[in-house]
Design a protein around this nucleic acid. Sequence first.
DNA 1: CTTGACCTTCCAGTGACTGGAACCCCCATT
DNA 2: AATGGGGGTTCCAGTCACTGGAAGGTCAAG
Lengths: 130, 130
Amino acid sequence: MNIGEVAEAAGVPPKTIRYYEEIGLIRPQRGDNGYRHFRESDLHKLAFLGRARALGFSIADCRVLLALYEDEARSSAEVKALAEQHLAEIDAKIAGLTEMRETLGDLVRSCAGDNRPDCPILSSLADPES
Amino acid sequence: MNIGEVAEAAGVPPKTIRYYEEIGLIRPQRGDNGYRHFRESDLHKLAFLGRARALGFSIADCRVLLALYEDEARSSAEVKALAEQHLAEIDAKIAGLTEMRETLGDLVRSCAGDNRPDCPILSSLADPES
DNA sequence: CTTGACCTTCCAGTGACTGGAACCCCCATT
DNA sequence: AATGGGGGTTCCAGTCACTGGAAGGTCAAG
């Protein structure tokens, strides 16, 4: 398979695939014309990476996950630990965003949104104590 | 005030303040020694920026917010529209993260986390249909 | 006069791509 | 044989909002 075909099949853009090769996540073969040639195992890896990224794992995490996936002697505890750590990060992000959402939501609700200049949103940004 | 003092007072690091000057968000004066000199209005702006950033507004949004803040003829509707747009982005982010959280949470719950290699997390990443 | 804290600029790196330019290759049609 | 279009290739730059670090100037205290 050429890069376009595997990109389509794995749901990962060609640019991203080239980037993944550059950082050593995959190592496709090369044909005589210099084209990358992808085997089934490459496609498999790319789809794996696409799903891991969609779950928010960093590239560093993905590297570890791929290594664990290919390590027959892994323990599921290692994988679970990584996933739980990531889950905690997601929770932290959600908590931060939720707090933002609440604060900003309050401000938006308190703003008339008419053509007068008085605006509690700006007032609060300028001085939340006032 | 010098940069350290205003950084402390506004809760914005010196590096960030220099960056904000570089991109034209603030224009502190300069002393004969080349040091930046910050007036009360600069401090005020920096604190404003710090709070807007803490609410997740982008630098581009902050630029607009500052301009609106300084525009006596603004309408609160303009501010509210910007805030509502940002609120929608926050909601979208929260929704995305929440979905990740659920999927990943399911996987983590289904993983024994023992010293055997069998791992539903890896299996699902490799092939979610299986 | 020296020390140390503070200030300056400039350059590079972060994460994970993404866009674009310049160029090469392969196949099919004229 | 030429050509056209849709692949592919590399390399460079940009994104976002800083952040770290190096090399060097300035200032106040002791």
